[in-house]
């Protein structure tokens, strides 16, 4: 869509710029100016994105152990990882985290955003306080969660037994432990979707909704037919960013289970291979494999986002 819009604009460009140009004019003509603006970004990308990428690509075909020079071994690393059932278990776990967290964050985020979308006393304070989890250091929080969830002296279990229920050991049972880890992640990132959606809803044209309510439309109907379609691009933005970040999920593990009780996720696994075992070859291979998968998912979502941005205009 944007391609032909560009063309349309080209025609409207004043033609006097094309003759008798000074150096400055050449630089600020669209053809050069757009690239001029990108020079800093491209420089950084060249160093920080291409360098590790090619380094890893190279290392993934080698047995690279840091203590001795790398030795070419072809596709052995790839074969080993793709045949390792452990890798697939961990990949499955990471994928389920992505799906569950994104699902919950978007649904709950939408609900809470609609819930908070009204005028009330102290509205700014309430909304501001809801933002808190987002600004807390994830590492600090994971350390503190362990303390709060401790069966013997943690506050959460103190509250649970205060109501007369049996203690729960949140972080030591398979399944429950991972659910707890996901809850921590959702707790932290739910404000992000709430705020994107809330801002979006508040930015929507009022008259459409007023017309609908005059017509006697039910609030559920308004939500489905008006709010939701208009929110589509925002849902896509949250989806894209969160999917990409959730594949990199590992912060909540640091202070809590360290990958125990069936909570090991992809990034923790990569961290162990690359940084505890210092197996650069396998680490790089894992990085390339996850990168390719993320790229595929990311590209699909990105295309959807561009489409959503286009249609809602």
């Amino acid at each position: 869509m944007s391609r032909h819009r560009n063309k349309a604009r080209m025609e409207t460009l004043p033609t006097q710029f094309l003759e008798n140009q000074t150096a400055w004019e050449i630089l600020t003509s669209e053809k050069y100016f757009k690239w001029l603006l990108l020079i800093p970004l491209l420089t950084i990308l060249a160093v920080f994105a291409f360098y590790p990428l090619f380094y890893c690509l190279y290392m993934s075909f080698n047995e690279a152990l840091l203590v001795k020079p790398p030795e070419y071994i072809g596709l052995t690393n790839y074969r080993k990882i793709l045949h390792d059932p452990n890798f697939w278990t961990i990949l499955g776990r990471s994928s389920s985290a992505v799906i569950v967290c994104v699902g919950v964050e978007i649904t709950l985020g939408l609900g809470i955003a609609v819930f908070l979308n009204r005028e009330f006393r102290g509205q700014n304070i309430v909304r501001g306080l809801c933002l808190l989890p987002l600004v807390v250091s994830p590492l600090a929080m994971s350390l503190m969660w362990k303390y709060f969830l401790e069966p013997q002296f943690g506050i959460i279990n103190a509250m649970i037994s205060g109501v007369g229920l049996p203690q729960i050991s949140f972080l030591s049972t398979d399944g429950l432990a991972f659910a707890t880890i996901m809850s921590m992640e959702i707790w932290k990132w739910l404000p992000f979707s709430i705020f994107v959606f809330l801002a979006a809803i508040r930015g929507m044209p009022r008259d459409v909704f007023e017309a609908a309510s005059v017509d006697g439309a039910k609030s559920w109907y308004t939500f489905r037919r008006l709010t939701l379609p208009m929110l589509r691009p925002f849902i896509m933005i949250v989806l894209l960013l969160r999917v990409m970040w959730l594949i990199r999920l590992s912060d909540p593990l640091f202070g809590t289970t360290q990958g125990g009780a069936g909570t090991e996720v992809l990034d923790w696994y990569v961290y162990r291979i690359a940084f505890v075992r210092f197996d650069l070859g396998e680490g790089a291979t894992l990085a390339i494999i996850t990168l390719v998968m993320t790229l595929i998912i990311g590209a699909i979502l990105f295309r959807q986002l561009i489409k959503a941005l286009g249609t809602s205009r």
Partner: peptide
């Protein structure tokens, strides 16, 4: 999109180069 993908790289691996 390429710019966006730089964050898709596991930091533990990127850290070594």
């Amino acid at each position: 999109f390429f710019t966006l993908t730089t964050r898709m790289f596991p930091p533990a691996v990127a850290a070594i180069p």
